[in-house]
Write a protein that binds this DNA or RNA. Structure first.
Lengths: 341, 341
DNA sequence: CTGAAAGCGCTTACAG
DNA sequence: CTGAAAGCGCTTACAG
């Protein structure tokens, strides 16, 4: 129905192979012929059928993006969307397409990934999360499907491609930033300690305090995913009296913003009473008041590096298990001030 | 390299056409042969090559999802991700795959959509936004590419498939809810009045007030995308003195949450001083404090209906320009109380 | 109920 | 520099 290489060939008076070669700008075709063929292609509105090309080339020029099985990852929401957007952007640039793999259960996700991979619909995958004992990773690894991870792997760390920040150092820097401003009682509030990224930031926070000779107080470490009642009690315990923490490291900007509201319930203001630093330097860090000091993770590079490296891997140019660690950066805004008590 | 229909045929001692037919569970193949073939398929781990199938069937079993060109759609972030997840879920169920189309400019987006559509990589598209003079819609329409919109179209309203809520009524219901609680001075705070959905909710708000015999006060209508300084000034003007609005309709939960913080800057508390109702009933409505009363738009049905209808359209079963309007529902939580002043 | 053959729209050795 | 032919892995009339 739609116009094919045959139509072009006929109209241009050449063989289909010649058309195919001019599409690929093969050097074995004379400029003159190419120009003629190109003119005809434009004239009759030819667009290559990617499916046919994929069939013979055994490649699809598409990357599958694997989202985590959805489970109350509320605060990470906006992070995933920006990952998707970033990957999409890098793929456009490289003339790749992106397909999405997601599922409501692990089995559903795996099934969907299998049909994509074995059905020849994608050349490789990008995994957007990292968790323990993940059957998805296990599958990709066993089947030798090319894949890359954004984040730090639990397993196969030395055998796979991944791009990440150094979240331990990032957590450390966040805590150090507050320490240098004179804060001594600093809380860490994170989402779901099962996630690798949260664990790492927490580890960094711990190190910073220890390096500063401050004893770690478990009461100052909170998990947002605690049952509601417990969480409220903890918050009250922390901020409901005079001896509250004057600094908070929040594992995500949105958590920081929620804290800012919770604090106002105790009559505490940011940054006057409490300084707070977030992560991700998301759009909310700028939009909300007070503007949030936040750690930028360079998500744009995170995604583009991942795409570039994965492509190298898929086309076979690169076979080493490269790991790329990107720097982070504190973006200072108005949520942290000096505390000299 | 990987195992094909030929391998199965050889091993099972039948023709490839027989294998093909048992894959499709054709009634013209005896149960006995089918079982034998299936056994062999399982044995040697056969998975159909979707690309090859797509080439002959002229169908790809994939749906393209079109994201808006990114432009500070901060507060909508989480909405898009849930749309994507919902579509993905419905597609899994129907054995469809989803490809993403996005771009940093309109030209890039269009280009990407064109190669997907004309390259035969998708059977149809779902457009996740609605805006005026959209070249994307224009293209899809002219080329007669099957597509559906989530939201209300600006153009071709009677010629295209779309699934939406009645956002005018939703806006009206939100305002009425506050009116019935005794509020008289009610503000509307929305993101980017250029978006269809915001305009509709605003229209509903206006109608509700008029029906209640309340004169519309333009000062009570705010656009979050205003330049920072202007926005701050307006907010201060509204809430910086004793005669502040006691009710707020916020076009998104996150806007409501930001307001809750801004208000605390003026010493105002939710719901004691000001009641506020949001939209989308997002995860944040539950997670933040106070828990937000919000309008649920049944996004799950929004996405699944869209997928089902689009599939009908793509396979040619349905050619009418169906529009589906889903109901909304107020989820009452703790951010609105009675006001009898 | 089953098979041989043509064809989907491309690409790529192989000849010339 | 160009073309005829085979083939990528399937599906589907057409015969029998």
């Amino acid at each position: 129905m739609s116009v094919t290489i045959k139509d072009v060939a006929k109209k241009a008076g050449v063989a289909t192979s010649t058309v195919s070669r001019t599409i690929q700008d093969s050097s074995s075709i004379s400029e003159k012929t190419k120009q003629n063929v190109r003119r005809v292609m434009k004239e009759i509105g030819y667009r290559p059928n990617l499916t046919a090309r994929g069939l013979v080339k055994q490649t699809t020029q598409t990357i599958g993006v694997i989202l985590p099985v959805s489970q109350g990852q509320g605060f990470q929401n906006t992070f995933f969307l920006s990952m998707i957007r970033g990957i999409s952007k890098a793929c456009n640039e490289k003339k790749y397409m992106v397909s999405l793999a997601s599922g409501t259960t692990e089995a559903e996700l795996l099934e969907s990934i299998q049909t994509m991979a074995e059905g020849g619909r994608v050349d490789g995958f990008i995994v957007l999360y990292s968790k323990k004992d993940d059957p998805i990773i296990e599958y990709l690894h066993q089947e030798k499907v090319p894949y890359a991870m954004i984040g730090k792997p639990y397993k196969y760390e030395n055998e796979m491609l991944y791009v990440d920040n150094d979240n331990v150092v990032a957590g450390k820097d966040a805590a150090n930033y507050l320490l240098q401003l004179g804060h001594k009682k600093i809380a860490f509030i994170g989402e779901d300690a099962k996630q690798m990224v949260i664990r790492e930031r927490l580890k960094g926070y711990t190190q910073a305090l220890e390096d500063a000779g401050i004893q770690i107080d478990e009461e100052l470490i909170l998990d947002v995913t605690l049952p509601e009642a417990a969480y409220q009690r903890k918050i009250k315990q922390l901020f409901g009296n005079g001896d509250f923490p004057t600094g908070i490291v929040a594992s995500d900007d949105l958590i920081a913003l929620n804290m800012s509201y919770l604090l106002s319930g105790f009559g505490l203001k940011i940054p006057t009473d409490v300084s707070i630093i977030g992560f991700n330097n998301s759009i909310f860090a700028e939009k909300f008041r007070p503007e949030l000091t936040s750690i930028d993770l360079h998500t744009d590079s995170l995604t583009s590096q991942t795409v570039y490296q994965l492509i190298e891997l898929m086309v076979g140019k690169q076979t080493l298990a490269v790991k790329i660690i990107l720097p982070h950066q504190i973006i200072e805004r108005q949520s942290c001030i000096r505390n000299d008590n």
